[in-house]
Every structure is written in C-alpha cells, then in structure tokens.
C-alpha cells in the first residue's frame, strides 16, 4: 500500500483538526479500509485513528435507548448491549468473525455504509440517531445509497443512539464467500409501528420495506408478509445470487425475523 502519516489523537477536537486536511481519512478499526488500501484502491496521506479517543468508546443504557460510542467494537456491543437490546447485540456478535469484531467499530461500519453490512439495517430499522461532531442525523436521512451517507467532509460520527423496540430480530443470510449479508433483515416493533430494514439486497444499499412495515404494524406475524413480494428491480445481482433471488430471500428473511422477534 501507499505510505501515509499515522496519527492517533486522544480527543474529538484533535481528530477533527487532523481530518481538516483533504487527504486525511479517519481509521476506525480499518477492517474494510485496510484491505482496500492493500490493493492500492485507497490512498490517504494521513490516517487519523479514532481508537485512541476514549470519549468515543462505550455503551450507555438509559431508559428506552441505548447509546453506543462510535469507536466501540462489535465485540463490546455484543457483550454490553445483550440485556438492553438483544437483537442489536446478536447482530453485532455475528458480524464478520471474532477478530473483525475485536477491531471493527459501529462508527466505522456506519460511515462506510457497505451495501451488505449489518449495522445499517439495525440503525435504520431502529430509527437510530447518528450523532456527529456537528449534528444529529436521523437514520432515515443518514443512508444515501451504496457507500454514501449524509456525512460531510470532516464530519465524524461520535455516537449512535438506538431507541429500544418492544420486539426485534435480525436475520442474516450470508454470502458464502465474504460472509457479508447476501440479504439481511432487521425487524423492530415499536409502540408506534413496525420498521423493517433490508441490507445486502439493493443496489441502493440499506432500505426500508414500507409494505411489510404496514402489514406488520397491523398484524405482527410472519403470515402478514407471506402475500407480499419485493420487486427484483434494483436488487443486486452477482455470482452469488440473482436479483430475483435476493428479492425472494429478503422476503423470506423478513418472515423469519418476525418469528424470531416473537
């Protein structure tokens, strides 16, 4: 890979200052970034590690919400959120593999917004709020398509706040090689209605399946979605599955997630 300057600030302010340089990029675990750098597909002049900023780490549970610092690893979320929000903890505990979970962070995952990543589904289905050094962004406004987010230059995620639903589950069907989601569905049932977010399937990245949300809000059972279907148009197609297959899979997984949520 190309060489770069490595800096590891200890405060958000220092990190933001370091990232003011156009050629600087944040490093928040690097489990996706480093492999792309090895291929020389990404060439920052400065890498700003966010893992030295204690303020970005940790989980707080308060009342009806869970707040997770951006630099909190998947392993930590899996462990520390297990009681407050088991579906979110289970999702974190199934990302990648144990080594990835010890380095990868929720902030890194959401900032990257890989179309087959797990966290975006949780954030979108939960109606989470992405908090940055500048503002609070509702999940519905945060995800802007494959690898695209509402984040601006120099803006970094500091924490993510998840409202805790009454019932929720995430069901992932793994792409057999990468173990990313070929399709993954997060279903969250709140007093005010049900939210369904699907990752891995669409060319537009994570999205909400509004027909399913409507049906499930009236009748929270797998049967409620059995008559629905997702349009294959706009679904990803590759050697692991056609657009039709992904659309079908997303529907099947939605039913299973509802059943798992109970």
């Amino acid at each position: 890979m190309y060489n770069f300057d490595f800096v590891k600030p200890s405060t958000v302010e220092e990190a933001v200052a370091a990232l003011a340089d156009d050629e600087a990029q944040p490093l928040s675990g690097g489990q996706t970034l480093i492999p792309t750098m090895k291929q020389r597909l990404n060439a920052p002049e400065t890498l700003v590690s966010l893992l030295g900023i204690e303020a970005l780490k940790g989980v707080t549970v308060g009342g009806d919400r869970v707040t997770i610092g951006a630099a909190t690893t998947h392993a930590t979320v899996a462990r520390e959120v297990a009681e407050a929000y088991p579906a979110l903890a289970a999702l974190a505990g199934n990302i990648g593999d144990p080594a990835v979970r010890n380095r990868g962070t929720i902030g890194g995952s959401l900032a990257n917004n890989d179309p087959a990543a797990c966290y975006p589904a949780a954030a979108l289905a939960s109606g989470a709020t992405v908090v940055t050094n500048r503002r609070e962004i509702p999940a519905d406004e945060y995800f802007e398509g494959m690898f695209a987010t509402a984040l601006e230059e120099g803006e970094i995620i500091t924490r993510v706040t998840f409202p805790i639903p009454e019932a929720a589950a995430y069901v992932k069907f793994e792409q057999p090689a990468s173990r990313f989601a070929l399709a993954g569905v997060f279903v969250a049932k709140f007093a005010g209605g049900v939210r369904v977010a699907i990752t891995g399937a669409s060319e537009e990245g994570v999205f909400r399946w509004s027909e399913a949300e409507e049906a499930l809000s009236g009748n929270f059972s797998a049967g409620a979605v059995s008559a629905l279907s997702l349009d294959a148009d706009g679904m990803m197609a590759d050697l692991h599955g056609s657009a039709e297959y992904r659309a079908h899979l997303a529907k099947v997984l939605t039913g299973r997630a509802v059943t798992a949520a109970g």
Binding site: F6, K8, L27, G30, I34, S49, L51, V100, R103
Partner: peptide, 10 residues
C-alpha cells in the same frame, strides 16, 4: 485480532 488488518502503530 488479524495482525494483517492492523497497523503496527496501532
């Protein structure tokens, strides 16, 4: 951790 996906400086 995977030592190939972590910089020595980290």
């Amino acid at each position: 951790v995977k030592s190939c996906t972590m910089f020595a400086a980290e």
